[in-house]
Structures are given as C-alpha cells and as structure tokens.
C-alpha cells in the first residue's frame, strides 16, 4: 500500500510546522543539517538548470556548481513531488500534500495554482513529458492519470489506474521515458504499490515492462522473462529516467535503490537507502540524487556509490 510513500508526506506535524516557521533563517545550514532541522520534511527532488531543488515543508535550492544555496519562502502546502523540464529552466510543478498542484516560474521561489480541472484528491506523482516541455502528467489517488498540454492551465483525464494482480493499483511515481513505444509515441513508466508498469503516451493500455516494443512482440512472440526484474510485488516509491540516456532508470523501493540500463527490464540492487524521492540529471545520466529520511544524497556513478550532499 502507500504507507512507505506517505510516511514522509504525512500531513504537517508539529516539527514540520516549526520548520516552516524557520523559513529563510534556515538558509545558512548545510543540506544535511537542513534535512535534519526539518525532520523528515523533504520529500521531493528535481534537477533544474544547474541546481538541485529539494522540497517538502520548504523549498531549498542548491547550486551544483558550488555556488550559493537558498531556502525560499514557504510554499502553500507541504510539497510531495516535483517535476521540471530542461527546456524550461526555472519552471517547476509541485504536487501538494492534501491535493492540488502548484507551478513556479522562478525556480521555486514563488508558486501559483496550476490545477485547473484537476480533481481534489492527493496528486501522488507528477512528471513532464520528455519530448513536450509544456505537457505535464499527474497521477491522482484513487483515480488515474491526468494530462495538461499547456503547462498546468487545463487538465483532462487520460487513463485509469493500472490493473495489476486483479486490482487497480495506486500510482506512486511516474516518469516520461523517451523511448519509442512502438505505438506511435514514447513510454510513461509508473511505479505502483505493486511494482513497475508502463503505458504508451497515447494512453491506449497499461502493460508490463518487457524487452523491446509492441511490434517486436509481434515478430518475436512472447518475450523472454527478464532475468533480474525488480522484486515482484514490492512498491516502487520513486522512479527516474535520465533524459540524455532514457534507457537508464533508477528506482527506489523499500528494499533500497535499484538501477537498470536496459529500459527497466533487468535491474541491479545498488544500495540499501530507502528514498521517497529520486531525480536523474537531465544531461549527465550517471548523476542521481535521492532523499532519505535525513539526508539528500548524490551519486555520480548511476547509484553505485553515494555521498551526502556536500555543504556549501
């Protein structure tokens, strides 16, 4: 179920409220201390134009080239998930705790609602389309996938939740993966409470992640079962695909961090970190960031080794 995921995204507790009050005062703290200072408040992550944006009760922007870090004014509500696109530097979409979606056009400093037509239940995941920077996807709890083609102004329902092991499953994380689906577009991958699945971006049907695309299946018949799939039935809490190398995926499960270099067919266990949020650098695919219960960690080798984000 969603427990693992919602643990860090629970409604505002006392410590979080205090952290929010801290506001700009916290901006001088190191990232690790920042994460500690707020308790488990950070739950969302995105690479945006040379910076890593970490969000939760607050929004914190860390310049990866060694420049200054900044903590911005408190968002309207705790941020549960973030998405952005390298062709739209400074524009961020944030799924808010309790429902709704906000957009920032200044790298996370200020926010405004971007959920016209989106239903009220919790948005559990948000992603931009790899090939269409103004197209945004949102997963709504108990409902399904919604799409906006105008950067969050208007939304429409596009797909029911995936059907896995005889039931509809909650989508916990989504990623637009820039690989041909064989159905006239690219894939959208989803981590659910019961494993990984994917749907072509025309939203014709959810299907298992297998080697090759739809027409390969036709030619080859039933594809061979993957040798090392993700552990069956385990929830996938976070998922990311590097835009510059979309066949390379990283996933966060309760059992730790996993990486794939063949479009999510086979996976290798990379570390025991439990992370509710992951992000891959759009142009440097080996670079992955993750949030754990008390740290922001960074890997430069596709998840083989990790270090807490250096203090500035």
């Amino acid at each position: 179920m969603m427990n693992e995921h919602s643990r860090t995204g629970s409604p505002l507790g006392r410590r979080q409220a205090l952290a929010m009050l801290g506001g700009v005062v916290l901006s001088g703290l190191s990232p690790a201390r920042w994460a500690h200072a707020g308790g488990a408040v950070a739950s969302a992550l995105a690479f945006d134009g040379g910076a890593l944006v970490v969000a939760g009760a607050q929004v914190w922007r860390h310049d990866l080239s060694g420049g200054a870090s900044a903590t911005f004014p408190t968002p309207r509500a705790h941020i549960r998930a973030l998405a952005c696109h390298p062709a739209r530097t400074g524009r961020l979409f944030a799924a808010l705790e309790g429902g709704g979606l906000d957009r920032s056009d200044d790298g996370g400093r200020t926010w405004h609602p971007a959920s016209g037509g989106l239903p009220m239940p919790q948005v559990t995941a948000v992603a931009t389309a790899a090939g269409a920077p103004d197209t945004v996807y949102a997963a709504v709890a108990g409902d399904g996938l919604w799409r906006s083609e105008d950067a969050g102004e208007n939304w429409s329902f596009v797909m029911d939740r995936p059907w896995i092991a005889d039931a509809e499953r909650e989508v916990l994380t989504i990623a637009s993966v820039n690989l041909a689906s064989g159905m006239g577009g690219i894939w959208i991958y989803a981590g659910t409470e019961r494993g990984l699945t994917r749907v072509p971006d025309c939203f014709c049907r959810w299907q298992d992640v297998v080697a090759g695309n739809a027409m390969d299946a036709l030619v080859a018949g039933t594809p061979p079962a993957p040798e090392t799939p993700l552990p069956e039935g385990e929830p996938v809490l976070a998922l990311t695909s590097a835009m510059a190398a979309p066949e390379r995926l990283a996933a966060a499960l309760p059992s730790g961090l996993w990486a794939s270099s063949d479009s999510g067919v086979n996976w290798a266990h990379r570390s025991g970190h439990v992370a509710p949020a992951l992000a891959a650098h759009p142009t440097e695919p080996s670079r992955i960031a993750a949030i754990t219960a008390d740290e922001v960690i960074l890997s430069h080798d596709s998840g083989a080794s990790w270090a807490a984000l250096p203090t500035t």
Binding site: G182, M183, G184, R205, V210, A214, A217, L218, T222, P223
Partner: peptide, 16 residues
C-alpha cells in the same frame, strides 16, 4: 498495428 490488433487481438502485440 491496427491490422494486427483487428486480426489477432490485442494480445498479439501485448502478450498476456
């Protein structure tokens, strides 16, 4: 794909 789905069903392109 349209021809295949119509002739052989959806499982021809999405096994199972």
């Amino acid at each position: 794909q349209l021809f295949t789905i119509t002739k052989l069903g959806v499982s021809a392109i999405v096994p199972g």
